[in-house]
Design a protein around this nucleic acid. Structure first.
Lengths: 142, 142
DNA sequence: CTCGTTGCAAACACTTTGCACTAAT
DNA sequence: ATTAGTGCAAAGTGTTTGCAACGAG
């Protein structure tokens, strides 16, 4: 199996508790945390861990193809352990970022691929709106 | 007509040569420049203009709905005077950013809108790949 | 003349880097 | 024992802000 442990070792990276912990946070959440959110999550368990370690680890995880980086229009990046390309949506009320996995974007990608002179290698789809909770709280302007 | 001059005045903003020049740069290009690119463009004509003015002006232009801000996965934002939402593609070889206007994304947006519990207010589609020039120059890894 | 704007520099926020100490192999 | 990684602080980027001098209305 290709566990994170094996993947790290195969590439000459050492397996440290910090790296495992950071990856675990990403695997166990759907909240698409930023580096700082991961850092805060781990504060209770790894009080001495630094933000720099989070950034350095995330970079390795991206290299290994275990994590993808999202740019949801905020000042900071967010990270997702689901590396398959799928659309994301950010709530303009509370800032939460959700997956939009149900939808098939293949046809859309295909139509782009057929009309552009570019050779397409990847894509990111970002939606913006208001989540159910914020809709009720009228945090949105109708 | 709703020229930039009128729009500025209507909202109590003053019409300055800097503001007109910055907007003109955006209207006359398809390169989706960053703030710094705009700044560099204007250096010969407005040698004393500061980057801060570019940023402040762009913010106003966004408020007026004359410009949209793009987040193409770089460290800096890019700006587009075509405010209608359309997909963009960035060349991973040379960094150029192009429009993908030919394609209709309505159906894709509609299918998302029908499956999500969010109230969607906007979206951004970003593609990545290699432009014709970089494909020839083999700047891409096959 | 008045009040918003410019341009400079300083402040900011997020991310990256340098380096001595520590820990994985 | 070796060599890479951690954690701290400092440096880097792009962007924003404060403020005195300036210019549009």
């Amino acid at each position: 199996m290709d566990s994170i442990t094996t993947l790290l070792r195969n590439r000459g990276f050492k397996v440290t508790p910090q790296r495992l912990a950071i990856y675990k946070v990403l695997v166990n959440t759907r909240s698409h945390p930023s580096a700082e959110m991961i850092f805060n999550d781990l504060q209770p368990v790894y009080p001495t861990m630094s933000l720099a370690t989070v950034y350095k680890t995330i970079e390795i995880l991206q290299e290994l193809g275990l994590v993808q980086r999202l740019n949801v229009g905020e000042d900071s990046f967010r990270y997702d352990a689901i590396v398959d390309t799928h659309p994301h949506i950010r709530c303009l009320g509370c800032g939460r970022v959700d997956d939009l996995e149900e939808v098939d974007s293949q046809e859309f990608v295909k139509s782009i691929d057929e009309t552009t002179s570019y050779k397409i290698t990847g894509q990111q789809f970002y939606f913006f709106g208001y989540c159910p909770v914020c809709q009720k709280q009228k945090k949105h302007q109708n």
